[in-house]
Amino acid sequence: MDEILVLAEHREGELRDITFEMLSKARSLGKDAGKSVTALLLGAGVGDYAEALKSHADEVLVLDHGNLKAFNAAVYQQVLSEVLKSREPSLVMIGHTAFGVDLAPGLAVTLELPFASDCIDLAYEGDDLKATRQIYEGKVNATVSFADAPTVLVTFRPSACPVEDAEASAGKVTELDVAVPEEPAMRQFLEYVEAAVGEVDITKADVVVSIGRGLREEENLPMIEELAEALGGVVACSRPCVDAGWLPKDRQVGSSGKTVKPKLYLAIGISGQFQHLSGMKAADTIVAVNKDPKAPIFSEADYGIVGDLMKVVPALKEKIAELRA
């Protein structure tokens, strides 16, 4: 039977959410299109994970090998090539993660696979797969079709699909027998270095007042700090504010920063691209202030103000002070 193959992603001893998100998507796709779902587990000392994957897939392929200890795109690409050549799954899903974006494009080139990256949805129309991806910073959705080929490859965006409950019937586990090359001298893993810890832990705060590039200048920070103080919260930010040196890295919310789940998240001058959203969308109440009514942040927010933050923030501070008085 035709299969959808999902590359299980794990890091430092844990399967990552994206793995189960992709398996959930694959299962619903497979149901409609009559395809089985296979999880491919590559790594060293990862045999245990098969148990967790088993109830989300019809089959789990395991290759447990010392040379797969570090995620090394060069090694993983070679192994994956072998597996894909022998199994010819009709669809391969890899996470659109730091690992996946380093691995998938090269694989697409060597195996000449039709390839679409950062997909947020997938659907079969008859035998034809259609992918939806976002372009222009989340403001436009594009439908993409694939050339006729035995196997097509996609990377799938994290948090784009909810995780479905595990199935009662468990899939079978198969040990793979594929040669695994040593890490090549041209690319060698050295170590992981944890992000530095700062003086304020934004993940512990009930109220997070977060600013984005819309603030324009570091000089405008004090009014944000005052607003945060008035609400008893902390100041956080989007990535460009860290890149520009306005705030330290430990204040960054998003996929390459921190994930926060405060009671209240105020997003001020933040457009709301998925890398930011993934770090804050679990907040209880989200309020967005943005001058662009089409900013993607408004789809995620509970309350919104369309307006100039330079006017709204001081006004809000004043209103809060009035209520307090």
Binding site: A98, R187, Q188, E191, S256
Partner: peptide, 16 residues
């Protein structure tokens, strides 16, 4: 090189 992974974790690699 240092590659930035999710959560700000840095993966250090030696590249030829």
């Amino acid at each position: 090189v240092g590659r930035e992974l999710e959560g700000g974790l840095i993966e250090k690699l030696k590249m030829k």
